[in-house]
Amino acid sequence: MHRTALAAIGLVVLSGIDVLAQQMDSTDAIHQRKELMKDNQEQMQALTGMSRGQVPFNIATAQAALQQIEQNARQIPSLFLSHQERGPTAALPVIWERKADFDARAAKLERDVTDALARISDLGSLQVAIQQVGQNCGGCHETFRRKER
Rank of each mutant, 00 (worst) to 15 (best):
T89A: 13
L6S: 03
F102K: 11
A60S: 11
T27D: 13
R33G: 04
Q84H: 14
Q41N: 14
M1E: 04
T61G: 03
H2M: 15
T114E: 08
K99D: 00
L36N: 05
Q63A: 00
M1C: 13
I30A: 02
T27V: 12
Q71H: 02
D122C: 09
S26D: 09
Q67K: 02
R119C: 08
K99R: 04
P88F: 13
D18Y: 12
Q63L: 10
N40M: 06
D25Q: 10
G138Y: 04
G53A: 02
A29D: 08
E85K: 02
V19S: 11
T61L: 13
V19R: 12
S51C: 05
R119Y: 08
L47V: 05
L109P: 01
A46H: 14
R111A: 01
Q68A: 09
R149M: 00
R3P: 07
Q84F: 10
L6A: 09
E35G: 05
L117P: 11
A29S: 14
L109W: 03
Q54D: 14
A46W: 00
P93F: 04
A104N: 09
E142I: 00
D28F: 02
P77N: 04
L123F: 01
C137A: 09
V13W: 00
A104L: 02
A104I: 02
A65E: 12
Q71S: 08
Q75T: 07
Q75K: 13
A60Y: 04
A90E: 14
Q135H: 06
R3M: 13
L66T: 06
E42M: 15
Q54V: 02
N58P: 15
Q71M: 06
Q135P: 01
K147G: 03
M37K: 01
L117N: 13
